[in-house]
């Protein structure tokens, strides 16, 4: 299924949104990923991925409250949908299944 395919970066973003549940927006997701993965991420890439995920129906969004750091600008708060949760679970299951299939070396 082309429409619901999750790319690696998309998967990471989706996970970050899930972690930050309720407080996920562009800047916080960027920070979360930078901290978790220890690498620099462009805001553009994050926004593009969020946009795609929303189009695919894995996350939804609504405009949230404003904070001072943002100069009074509102944030768009993202949250994972049931479809998004199921997609994450499927991926995890698939990975686990594959891990299980790796033959264990003798003696371990």
């Amino acid at each position: 299924m082309k429409g619901t395919y999750l790319g690696e970066f998309e998967e990471i973003i989706l996970l970050a949104v899930a972690i930050l549940s309720g407080d996920a927006y562009g800047a916080s997701v960027t920070n979360e990923i930078e901290q978790q993965m220890g690498r620099a991420v462009n805001l553009g890439a994050v926004h593009a991925a969020l946009h795609r995920l929303e189009e695919k129906g894995f996350i939804t969004s609504q405009m949230g409250g404003a904070t001072n750091e943002r100069g009074g600008r509102r944030k768009r708060i993202f949250s994972v949908t049931a479809l998004g949760i199921r997609a994450l679970e499927t991926i995890r299951q698939l990975r686990n299944q594959m891990w299980d299939n790796i033959p264990k070396p003798a003696g371990v």
Partner: peptide, 10 residues
Amino acid sequence: EEIEGDLHEL
């Protein structure tokens, strides 16, 4: 609005 907000926050 949201993008500029994110940019400023970061």
